[in-house]
């Protein structure tokens, strides 16, 4: 089909300059202004060729072509096929209604010598609602040429057929490239995730003390809070202690030195990524001071319940991941 269209377009493009105005019909009434037929070259066609004819029809304004009078694609003769009919409405301008009627024929005549054949006229009807006017797209004749010699010179070539088309395997190249692209996407996605999460092989790319600490905090609290009914109830002292220690170690590792409550302003200046958590971190340090030096583990745990501890560890991890 695409070939057909290309062929048609080629025909039209090549022949427009020499398009012959075969008939500038004198108006049949005042209703029909003109019918102009644009045709391809009138010679050199062989069996199976398509012939693209185009007719420009101009009518007086209230008249319109009756769509029912258009020919339908069909077999017109034993050798002639009308394969496509296309009507383009060119709109009304200066009181004239314009149409372009494109007719595509296909000839199946097998001449033995160049032979003149005719495509018959196409009758159409225009109407303004009340009156009807007959319009005729003029006939067109052309020369068909034979494809083969009449008597073959070579031995046994008269009946020699062109070879069969062998079945070919399904083209898989596109699918293969698609699969490769998808695999590349999987690798890229995994790589991005691993890089962000600090998984292998990026686990040693840069130490992420808070990522480590977040894991430890969760593990410590989970192991100690198991008997507890809910996550908001204070954890047992060893778990809480271990969780706080893990976070302190992460602070120390991030700063490269021991971090105490007094060092926090310097710490946040050096690591602005954690600034959003400053208030909570201060509270954390106060709670741990109470735990480790004030010897009041229950109060400390109440001040900083496990759920909050885990949440803070996560936020610190996120800050470390995004901003450091």
């Amino acid at each position: 089909m695409r070939r057909t269209v290309r062929h048609l377009v080629l025909c039209l493009a090549g022949l427009l300059p020499m398009a012959v105005v075969l008939l500038a019909a004198p108006p049949a009434g005042a209703q029909l202004r003109s019918v102009e037929l644009y045709a391809p070259r009138p010679f050199g066609h062989v069996i199976g060729d398509t012939l693209a004819l185009s007719a420009d029809i101009v009518l007086e304004a209230p008249f319109r072509l009756d769509p029912a009078s258009l020919p339908r694609p069909r077999s017109l003769d034993y050798w002639l096929e009308l394969t496509d009919v296309r009507l383009t409405d060119g709109g009304t301008r200066d009181g004239a209604q314009r149409y372009t009627l494109e007719l595509t024929y296909q000839t199946f005549y097998a001449p033995l010598e160049p032979k003149r054949l005719a495509i018959p006229a196409v009758p159409l009807t225009a109407t303004d609602g009340a009156r009807q006017v007959a319009i005729t797209v003029p006939p067109w004749s052309f020369l068909m040429s034979p494809l083969r010699e009449i008597v073959a010179i070579g031995e046994g070539t008269t009946m020699a057929l062109r070879p069969d088309i062998a079945p070919r395997p399904v083209a898989t190249t596109g699918t293969r490239y698609g699969l490769l692209a998808a695999l590349a996407g999987v690798v890229a996605g995994l790589g991005l995730l691993a890089w962000q999460m600090g998984w292998w092989p990026f686990s040693r790319r840069r130490d992420r003390p808070f990522a480590h600490a977040a894991r430890e905090v969760r593990a410590a609290l989970a192991s100690s809070a198991k008997p507890a009914a809910s996550s908001t109830s204070p954890a047992s002292a060893p778990g809480h202690r271990a969780a706080l220690l893990a976070l302190h170690r992460a602070f120390d590792a991030t700063a490269g030195q021991g971090v105490f409550a007094e060092d926090l302003p310097d710490f946040f200046r050096a690591h602005p990524a954690f600034a959003t958590t400053e208030a909570e971190v201060r509270r954390l340090f106060a709670a741990s001071r109470r735990l480790f030096f004030g010897d009041d583990p229950i109060e400390s745990a109440r001040e900083f319940p496990p759920a909050e501890l885990v949440a803070l560890a996560r936020r610190l991890r996120a800050g470390e991941r995004g901003g450091a």
């Binding site: 996605g189 995994l190 995730l193 890089w195 959003t276 996120a318 800050g319 991941r321």
Partner: peptide, 27 residues
């Protein structure tokens, strides 16, 4: 800083979406 976290998170999302789409396409 907040921008940093957001950037990290969007990278994470991009990675996850890329992985999911690629897996589906691969299958």
């Amino acid at each position: 800083m907040r921008l940093g976290i957001r950037r990290g998170r969007s990278a994470l999302c991009t990675g996850a979406i890329l992985l999911a789409i690629s897996l589906c396409a691969g299958v």
